[in-house]
């Protein structure tokens, strides 16, 4: 039987451009949570007790030492953490005791971390959202479109963002980000 080795969509890409660092976060596991209609309160309670995180308002994320929980909309959230991808979703489902519908999303996404001074100059050429501190503070998160590709953006720190897009078009997404970096460095 053939033995297959899992490989990240961009092969563990890691480059610096001046003071900017663009890196593929291949260690991340993604699990989406859907809140059952009518049982939202129980779901929030389960998230609080098992993950030690309060479900944030839509457009924001909550973070602890290991997990980041992004509220994508009224009924949906995305949990991001470093884990063995194959085991991530059952572990979350068990921890939540079935209070949310969970789906393993890990292999569907590519995650790029972009950090360094002037990171917003790069993103303003790529991302249609207003990323100013007043409207997109640290821990803000959103789904949007970048270069015609669906994408998620999370502000991890003042000068650090994580961009997520479909793993099937990871190369095109990387090209878009690299091109944007090229305009400012």
């Amino acid at each position: 039987m053939a033995s297959l080795t899992p490989a990240p969509p961009l092969g563990g890409y890691d480059m610096t451009f001046g003071e900017l660092r663009l890196r593929e976060c291949s260690e991340l596991a993604l699990v989406s949570l859907a809140l059952p209609l009518g049982d939202e309160a129980a779901a929030k309670k389960a998230i609080k007790s098992s993950l030690k995180l309060d479900l944030p308002a839509p457009g924001m994320s909550a973070v602890n030492d290991t997990h980041r929980l992004i509220r994508m909309g009224p009924d949906q959230a995305m949990l991001i953490f470093a884990d063995d991808a194959a085991l991530a979703e059952p572990a979350v489902q068990t921890a939540l005791k079935g209070a949310c519908y969970t789906t393993n999303q890990t292999d569907a996404w590519v995650a790029l971390s972009l950090a360094g001074p002037g990171v917003r100059d790069v993103l303003e050429r790529l991302c249609p959202l207003d990323l100013h501190d007043a409207t997109f503070p640290v821990d803000a998160a959103a789904r949007t479109v970048m270069e015609h590709m669906g994408a998620m953006i999370v502000r991890e720190e003042q000068d650090g963002f994580v961009l997520l897009s479909a793993s099937s078009s990871a190369g095109s997404f990387l090209h878009a980000v690299e091109t944007s970096i090229g305009y400012v460095t």
Binding site: G73, P128, L129, D130, T144, V145
Partner: peptide, 11 residues
């Protein structure tokens, strides 16, 4: 109403 102003291209 929840996410603030968004470009019509997202819709």
């Amino acid at each position: 109403p929840l996410l603030g102003p968004r470009d019509a291209a997202e819709f």
